[in-house]
Write a protein that binds this DNA or RNA. Structure first.
Length: 604
RNA sequence: GCUCCUGUAGUUCAAUGGAUAGAAUGUUGGCCUCCGAAGCCGAAGAUCCGGGUUCGACUCCCGGCGGGAGCACCA
């Protein structure tokens, strides 16, 4: 964009990328000057309801109570006044040139940015790199391992797998945006009981012709047949268990079949990941850790954490209400390892090899107990072994429901294949694009349908709080109205369209822009300046829906502005400032949508 | 039985202990001689129940009720 302000670092530092953060710091200093102890006062700055300003500091209210001594009462409004006076004294024109400060209600301090500052801010941070640099200080120099996706091999992915992939990838992008080095690891389930069953199925139920035709399909059928057999017959179950032990002991025939299944699986998985815009750095599945498990057993036993119980090696946590008696089984009574064993080895490897500062595992909420036990065990183990303890977050999510409110399934009751879901999304989007824009060439419509269809599926997931279940509805996610990917993409397209119509001679440059005047201009500018707050909320909670919510509100502010204020007007200075808004809105929408794995368009 | 998640307009979702609980959809009234109407502006409509903490509770605590899930060798 040719209208960019000169990239002087000093100017950049001067403008305060994250205004809320700056106010927080300034208010702390002012409070210190008044002698308010840092322990009992925090400014508590947050984005405000637009009616009251851009930011509000609520900390005085709780401080008034905390600082009251018996028999004395602190008047929060008077305290707010004192704090505001101190703030204005310290900051002077640097503050008052940029915003108006006022006290309201019982003791809120409100900050309303002035139009001239809004303009300066928008002219200063006008490229994605500027946003990235502003946000990138938060996690600078930290390494985070994100373990997501992580399906079992030997089965095709179904809808149940999509949330981990989508949420995990969004978290990766968010952490990178905030400056972290991110390692994307697909912790494949490639070493578990299902292989015992496949080996059993291969011996008893193999259809060689089917294996030639579609190997993965046949392996999946074998697994199902064996699984059914194991449910009916204890002898079959026992045989499948022994097959797993044979595999884990390195028997050649078992290993070679296992390798074949895995290679086939990974190829299929990758084709899905590519469609979703996901590229893993590693596929370190459970099997990768098989030579590290003995050491885990040794250290756990050495630390006195693991004990024999009912023939298995388990860890109890006596201080915990449930895990005092509910065991964490690290080695099965038949000697085989399980996912507790591999997950413990994985935790150690991530710290040793990747020097992880933090580890994030993204799975559905049903695995809560497992990861709670894993983390309890890890903390004690690492402390005993003198290992460095990383941060750990188990990021969970709810179930995808069908429109009947039950877990989503096909009519016949089988899980919906992920590939089929994505295909249908593209087909449905293609039909809509064709209906709305029949004159575009088919190749173009296909391309748009890919972005819109896949984007709609991704956005439907990321636009809601991950911890709840959500109802999957084609009509809703592709409806193009409301908080959907198509609505946001449409906003991008309209801006791109204006910029296409803009003639070079009309493009007089952002330096000629006058401060915003109309209510719609001001509302849009304020929303743009609120971007750092949305990033902050999303990353501090690892909840991407805060980004989505922000983008939806931004697109809404733009649409209102677009409808009420013509951009390509005759007055050069009005045109210039509206172009600043258009360009910044487009850039912010693109930045945010890319964080959410959605490809943007300039036509749809 | 114990534990975790979850109950917000008819429906699908928001709301870091803050000001008058926001949207969308559906219902309904307007707006294209104007940069893409896949849009914009307006109306009506909700915190499961009962206690408690707080200056202030959808949010925190206790007790119910409803939905989902986990609890010894699946992951």
């Amino acid at each position: 964009m040719r209208n960019r302000a000169p990239p002087r670092l000093s100017a950049w530092m001067d403008v305060w990328f994250d205004v809320a953060h700056h106010l927080e710091t300034a208010l702390k200093a002012a409070a210190a000057e008044l002698g308010w102890p840092a322990g009992s006062f925090t400014p508590d700055v947050r984005t405000a309801d637009p009616r009251f300003g851009d930011f509000q500091a609520n900390g005085v209210l709780s401080y008034a109570k905390a600082s009251a001594t018996p028999g004395t009462k602190q008047n929060p409004r008077a305290l707010a006044q004192a704090l505001m006076d101190a703030l204005l004294r310290r900051e002077g024109a640097a503050l008052t040139d940029r915003m108006t400060v006022s006290i309201a209600g019982p003791g809120f301090i409100n900050f309303a940015l002035k139009p001239s500052f809004l303009l300066t801010w928008l002219r200063t941070f006008d490229r994605e790199d500027d946003l990235r640099r502003g946000a990138g200080q938060r996690l600078a120099s930290q390494t985070w391992i994100v373990d997501y996706g992580s399906p079992n091999t030997a089965k095709q992915m179904h809808v149940g797998h999509i949330r981990s992939i989508i949420i995990g990838e969004a978290i990766c992008r968010l952490l990178e945006f905030c400056g972290a080095k991110v390692v994307r690891d697909n912790h494949l389930g490639d070493w578990g009981t299902q292989f015992g069953k496949i080996l059993y199925g291969y011996k008893h139920h193999l259809d060689r012709a089917a294996l030639e035709r579609d190997p993965l399909e046949e392996f999946e059928r074998l697994y199902k047949a064996a699984d059914a057999a194991c449910k009916e017959s204890p002898a079959a179950l026992e045989e499948a268990r022994l097959e797993l032990v044979r595999l884990q002991n390195g028997e050649a025939d078992a290993v070679s079949l296992w390798e074949r299944v895995n290679q086939l699986s990974i190829d299929t998985l990758n084709s899905i990941y590519a469609r979703l815009g996901v590229r893993y750095d590693h596929f370190l599945g459970e099997s990768f850790y098989r030579d590290r498990i003995e050491a885990v057993y040794r250290e756990l036993i050495g630390a006195g954490l693991a004990v024999e119980s009912e023939g298995a090696l388990v860890v109890f946590h006596p201080e915990h209400p449930r895990f005092a008696t509910q065991p964490f089984i690290v080695r099965k009574s038949d000697g085989a390892s399980n996912y507790a064993s591999t997950d413990l080895a994985t935790m150690a490897y991530r710290v040793e090899h990747f020097k992880a500062d933090g580890v994030i595992v993204v799975t559905d909420a049903r695995q809560n107990d497992h990861f709670e036990q894993l983390w309890l065990t890890t903390q004690k183990w690492f402390a005993h072994a003198g290992r460095r303890l990383p941060q750990f977050q188990h990021v969970t999510f709810g179930t995808i429901l069908g429109e009947d409110g039950k877990a989503i399934k096909t009519r016949s009751g089988d899980p919906i294949r992920l590939k089929a879901l994505l295909d249908e999304a593209e087909e449905r989007a293609f039909a809509v694009v064709t209906e709305k824009n029949a004159d575009l060439p088919e190749a173009k419509r296909r391309e748009i349908a890919r972005a819109v269809g896949i984007g709609a599926v991704i956005y439907a997931d990321l636009s809601q709080n991950r911890s709840s279940d959500y109802v999957f509805s084609w009509d809703k996610l592709l409806s193009l109205d409301g908080n959907t990917a198509p609505y946001l993409l449409y906003a991008c397209v309209r801006i791109a369209s204006i910029l296409r119509k803009l003639e070079p001679a009309q493009d007089v440059g952002a330096e000629n822009a006058t401060p915003f005047e109309t209510p719609e201009e001001i509302a849009l500018a304020r929303k743009l300046v609120a971007f750092p707050g949305a990033i902050d909320q999303a990353v501090s909670t690892l909840r991407p829906h805060f980004i989505s919510l922000y983008l939806y509100e931004l697109a809404g502010a733009f649409s209102s502005f677009y409808n009420a204020n013509r951009v390509l007007v005759d007055e050069p200075e009005v045109r210039a400032r509206r172009l600043v808004l258009c360009r910044r809105t487009l850039m912010t929408l693109q930045t945010g949508l890319h964080l959410l794995e959605i490809r943007t368009l300039d036509q749809m």
